[in-house]
Every structure is written in C-alpha cells, then in structure tokens.
C-alpha cells in the first residue's frame, strides 16, 4: 500500500498530457449542450456512467495484473469511434512516458514495447498504478476522477465558468464517483473467473458522434 502515490498519479499536473484534452466538453460547449454549471454537471454525470465506468474497469483490471494487451483489445472493442481510439492511444503514450520516468517497471516496459504507438490510456493508467504500488480501486478512482475533472477544467476555459462553480460540480459528483469506482473494481475482480468480456461496455452516442465531428474541426482549443 502506497496511497500517496494516487495523489501524484491523479494530480492534474502529472505530465501525461491530459490538459490538452477536454473529454468532449469543447464540442459540447460549441453545440450549446454545456452552457452553465448545471449542464456541465449533467455532462460529467453522463460521461462518468458511460466512458468513465468503462475506463475505470479497464484500469482496475490492468492494476490487478490482468494481461494489458488483452485489455487493450477489449478497449478497442469498446471504442467504436476512430477519433476516440486515436485520442486514447495518444494519451496512453504520453501517460506511458510519464509513468516510466516516475515508477519504472518491467511491466510498463513490456507494454511500451508491445504498443509503441500507445496502448489505450486506461490500460496504461492501470499498469502505472500497479507499478506505483497502488491497488485496483485506486486506479479506478484515478480514472473516474479524470473522466469528470477534464471536462470541468476545460469548461472553465471554454465558457469562462467560475472555477468555484466548476469545483462545486465535482464535489456534487463525489458520491457517484465513489459508486462508479467501486462498481468498476468489483467487475474487474470478476475477470479472473469469468474473463475479460465481463467488463462493462457502456456507450454514449453523443460523446461518440461529437468526438468524430470535433476531430475534423480546424479551429479548436483542445485536441479532443
């Protein structure tokens, strides 16, 4: 147990490139689907229970030591949109660089060698958590928090939303963050018996569609 490492890993200043991504908030702001703190909270809630749940379960399973390449294929099958697969692999590559510098391990090296263009970010996050001596539940927490903190931080910039309001949104989501992290970890625990197909595959059509739309926009503040 090495819990303080979770603060390092989940810190927005951990140099894994997350600041350049809005988690779908930029196209949602552009389309008027996020306009204030309340719609930001709803957006984050929807992302948490779909993409967040899937990412947390993948991260927890990777942190538990399940085959990261099999998990990477499971992530592909759960990410139908090409733009989101590209984003997940770019973020995975950046997370890999930061993690190998911070908590070097043979498992990180092996995954980096097998996926030179980057593995899906939640899988890298899980292996990084494992290398840092963290538990699967910790990896799930890092994943769910990032799922909502990314859009919240981006919306402060995109809408000039009051940072106090954005932080209040995150605080209001805390009970659901707890629940999703625990559900994801409980499901990841079943992988040993039931195989990787047991992992959740929750989809979000608006996130999918707007990610592909956003990828083709020439003028954008965030990469995704």
């Amino acid at each position: 147990m090495n819990r303080a490492a979770l603060l390092v890993l989940a810190d927005g200043r951990f140099p894994a490139g997350g600041h350049a991504h809005s988690g779908g908030a930029e196209p949602a702001v552009a389309a008027g689907r996020i306009r204030d703190a309340e719609s930001l909270e709803n957006f984050c809630r929807g992302r948490l229970h779909t993409a967040g749940l899937v990412a947390a379960a993948l991260a927890a399973a990777a942190a538990a030591g399940h085959d990261p390449l099999a998990l990477d294929r499971a992530a592909d099958a759960r990410t139908p949109v090409a733009a989101l697969r590209d984003t997940a692999r770019k973020l995975g590559r950046q997370m890999m660089r930061a993690a190998r510098a911070t908590w070097p391990s043979a498992e990180l090296d092996a995954l980096a060698t097998a996926r030179p263009r980057g593995a899906h970010q939640p899988v890298v996050l899980g292996v990084a958590a494992r290398s840092a001596g963290l538990e699967p539940l910790d990896a799930a927490y890092a994943a769910v928090y990032e799922t909502v903190s990314g859009p919240a931080t981006a919306t402060v910039r995109l809408l000039s939303l009051d940072p106090f309001d954005a932080t209040t949104v995150l605080a209001r989501l805390v009970p659901e963050l707890d629940r999703v992290a625990e559900t994801a970890t409980a499901t990841a625990r079943r992988v040993a018996e039931e195989g990787i197909d047991v992992l959740p595959a929750a989809s979000a059509p608006l996130l999918d569609i707007s990610a592909q739309q956003h990828a083709t926009r020439p003028a954008r503040l965030f990469a995704s």
Binding site: F43, C44, G46, P200
Partner: peptide, 17 residues
C-alpha cells in the same frame, strides 16, 4: 457495446449520452 436508457438509467438523458 451496452446502452441503458430511460427511467432508472444513470445519465442517459444528459448532454454526454
């Protein structure tokens, strides 16, 4: 791919889903 829509499904009618 899973989907969960309607009363009782968390977040289904949000701007992300």
């Amino acid at each position: 791919q899973e989907a969960d829509y309607g009363p009782g499904a968390p977040g289904w009618d949000t701007p992300a889903v």
